[in-house]
Structures are given as structure tokens and as C-alpha cells.
Design a protein around this nucleic acid. Structure first.
Lengths: 139, 139
DNA sequence: CTAAATGCAAACGGTTTGCAATGCT
DNA sequence: AGCATTGCAAACCGTTTGCATTTAG
């Protein structure tokens, strides 16, 4: 328990983020359940441990994490923003039946972006839609 | 003029969309100015030719075009949805300075999506962010 | 004690909805 | 006349903001 909090504090420190109750809880949630939650999902998850938490604080925290590079956003076509804590380069696949978002491994060297001379490329995102194996079987 | 409208009507018919004033105007706008407009931009462009047009009708039309496959949405991190009428496979690059969205050619065969066995991939999207040549020079 | 962090509630803005008005066949 | 299309205004909902309160060093 105490060890885990130390781990989380160190994690934040690497990104020059000062620890606080909500920051540790959000980080813990994101690291333990490596999913791609919306702000609302993070908020609801925190409620049980921090009943007085507000959505604004969750947004604050997520925005801070974004600006420090702890998180990235995933551009799905959905209205709600989804957050991804996995810093490695990977693609996202969203099932159009169940809506679940999957990570998949991509070899960055095998991605040929064609002619982008003169452009400074800082981030690349690969997003696919279709049907996941599970929904495919249940059709 | 009349010829052009015929062309637009044929275009809609290929997608099983019945022509109407607003549909022809939206299609014309999208085809002529092959940009990636937001719904608001389309709305403002229509105002001069159709002063009584409403945002709701623009959203209706865009949603219809989406469902019929005339358009695709572009997932940028922005709040507003952007629409793309270019059906060919290509990537999008958004400049983080000026916000402009560029198309760039991608050879689909050179995109290795890694292990996606069992997944039915229907659409793929490649989105990059960075600095465009123009903004790079003016820094 | 001071600055940062948090909570609250209202505002914002893009989008959607319900329904009345209009247009087309 | 009957059905599709359009316009209007209000509602919706994810997100942001301003400000008062609390917390931490």
C-alpha cells in the first residue's frame, strides 16, 4: 500500500507533477486498468474513494497529465474524449458493435507516411474501425 | 450552371440520396473547396445562397451524407467535427500552429498494421500533428 | 502564512431533438 | 393529399470557467 503510493509519487515526479490525493488516485486508476477511459468514467471510479471529488478536478487533473505528457488523447469519432496512458507507439482499433477500444502493436518503421517533406511530424496516430473477434462470432 | 447541377444530382444519385436544394449546395461546397470544413463553416458558406438555412438542416444533411458514405469524418483532437469528401485513402496532418489540416498521400500497402488477426478492419485513419512548412519558416 | 489545489455552480459551445411549417409528387 | 424536407427554438451533454474554500509545505 505504502509502497504503491511511493511508486505512484515517483511516477508523477518523473513528469514534474507534484503529487496530490486526486492525482495519485487518477494515476492509479489509469495504470491499474489500462483501458481508455473517458473523463466521466474516471470521475465515477474516483467517487467511491473520494466522494467529494468534482468533475472539474478530474478535468483539471487529466489536462495537467496531458500537458506533462503522462497521457495522450485518443481521437475516436465519439463525442467524449478518451485518454491513453500507454506511451509506446501503437494503433487503436474500435469495434463498431460493442464500442470497445483495443490497442494493437504497430512497427513504426513499417509506416510509410509518403511525401511529408518540410513538415515536422510530432505525433502520429493510427485509428481503425471494424468488428472485433468477439462481436464477429456472436453475429 | 444547369450542367453543373445535373452533375451534382448524378453524384447524389450514385449514393442513393435524393436531391434537394440544401443537399446540392452542401455537395457543391464540399466538392469545389476540397477542404475539411466544420459544420459551422458549411453553414456560414450556405448562408449567402440560402439565407434561411438553419444549422439543424446542415447537420441533417451532413449526417445523411455520412450514413450514405459520401463523407467521412476526420478525427482531430478538436471539439468540432470535420468532414472529408475525398474517398481515397490518405492521411491527415494538422499543424499545431495554424490549425490547418493537410491531406497527404499514403500507400496503403506500406501500412503494416501488425497482428490484427480475427479483427474485421473496415476503416483506417492516419492522423499526424506537428508544424507545417509555412509556419516552420515564419518562426 | 502563502501558494497551490480543489469544489461548486454556472456558463459555453457543438450537436441533437421535437415539432411546426414548407415543399414536392 | 401525403410524405419528405426544412426551419426554429429549446434541450442536451461534454467541457470550461470564475471564484470561493480547502489543503499542503
Amino acid at each position: 500500500m505504502e509502497l504503491e503510493v511511493t511508486y505512484l509519487k515517483d511516477y508523477l515526479q518523473k513528469y514534474e507533477v507534484k503529487p496530490s490525493t486526486i492525482r495519485l488516485l487518477v494515476l492509479d486508476y489509469l495504470l491499474c486498468r489500462r483501458t481508455h477511459p473517458t473523463a466521466e468514467e474516471v470521475y465515477r471510479a474516483l467517487l467511491s474513494q473520494l466522494p467529494a471529488v468534482s468533475r472539474a478536478s478530474v478535468y483539471n487533473t487529466l489536462d495537467l497529465f496531458l500537458s506533462k505528457g503522462i497521457l495522450k488523447t485518443v481521437s475516436t469519432g465519439e463525442r467524449e474524449t478518451r485518454y491513453d496512458i500507454d506511451g509506446s507507439f501503437h494503433g487503436h482499433f474500435q469495434c463498431e458493435v460493442c464500442g470497445k477500444l483495443y490497442d494493437f502493436h504497430v512497427n513504426p518503421e513499417k509506416i510509410d507516411l509518403g511525401e511529408l517533406g518540410g513538415f515536422v511530424v510530432k505525433t502520429r496516430e493510427i485509428y481503425c474501425r471494424g468488428i472485433c473477434p468477439h462481436c464477429r462470432q456472436n453475429q
